[in-house]
């Protein structure tokens, strides 16, 4: 019995989103269980199941070095730049 993470794409055009996890012995059972447990109200156009052990996650201890530098580089955000009056479509 393995732990699997479940991702659903609600409808085409959207990303798959993590919705939770479940137990199953293999991929086939994981898909069937995911369908039964997470899509009873028509919540999905597509299901991904991934063994939890296959997920590589960033270490929260590294949060600062991975994510903080981006917070300082505000020139990546469009709002940093002032658009002169009279210029459209920018």
């Amino acid at each position: 019995m393995q732990l699997w993470e479940v991702f659903l794409r609600p409808r085409n055009g959207m990303h798959h989103q993590h919705v939770g996890s479940l137990h199953a012995v293999d991929a086939e059972m994981a898909l069937e269980n995911a369908r039964d447990v997470f899509t009873r109200r028509g919540e999905a156009a597509s299901i991904w199941v991934v063994p939890s052990a296959a997920i590589v996650a960033s270490d929260p201890a590294d949060k600062d070095e991975l994510f903080e530098p981006a917070m300082d580089k505000i020139y990546r955000h469009p709002t940093f730049y002032e658009v002169p009056d009279g210029v459209a479509n920018l």
Partner: peptide, 25 residues
Amino acid sequence: LAKVQDEAGHGLYLYAAAETLGTSR
């Protein structure tokens, strides 16, 4: 039937949430 089935589903969501804290089902 639909209601009781929902309850099984709720149990499953909750066990899964508890498992993220390091315990197993």
